[in-house]
């Protein structure tokens, strides 16, 4: 079994005031083809506000991931989809994180990312609604 932290970020499209990103990090133990245990989940929303702000940049994404992972009590290799880091080569992404990092490979890692995706998307939808953030495109 391997300890991983599956990461997903929702909200990369612009809404009226900027970008409302929600990052979900799930600490899990996985085998090659199954998630064996879900140990903890952390969620962190972040506003990138302002008309001058274009799309979130790679350092913004890396910082958001690092801050979300810092909320977890467990260690593990960070795993994301390649697209989440703008398809950067692995050596570029690896060098930007303080801990071990890799892109998803095995079935279990892909399933874990799917889990993190559902968490970040649902959390963002809920926050948009509860905080009355208008999603004016």
């Amino acid at each position: 079994m391997w300890d991983i932290i599956a990461i997903d970020i929702s909200g990369r499209h612009r809404i009226r005031d900027g970008y409302y990103l929600v990052c979900a990090a799930a600490a899990l133990s996985v085998s090659a083809d199954h998630i064996e245990k879900i140990k903890q989940v952390a969620i962190l929303p972040r506003w990138l506000k302002g008309k001058e702000i274009k799309a979130p940049q790679l350092p913004d994404i890396v910082q958001l991931i690092e801050d979300t992972v810092a909320k977890l009590d467990y260690d593990g290799t960070l795993v994301t989809e390649k697209g989440d880091l703008y398809n950067q080569p692995l050596w570029v992404s690896e060098s930007m994180f303080s801990g071990a990092f890799k892109y998803q490979e095995s079935m279990a890692e892909r399933r874990a990312i799917e889990l993190a995706h559902h968490i970040s998307l649902s959390a963002r939808n809920l926050l948009l609604k509860e905080l009355n953030i208008e999603a004016g495109q």
Partner: peptide, 10 residues
């Protein structure tokens, strides 16, 4: 090889 692919070989 197993060190490299163990996580992909159930």
């Amino acid at each position: 090889l197993l060190d490299k692919i163990g996580h992909l070989a159930p």
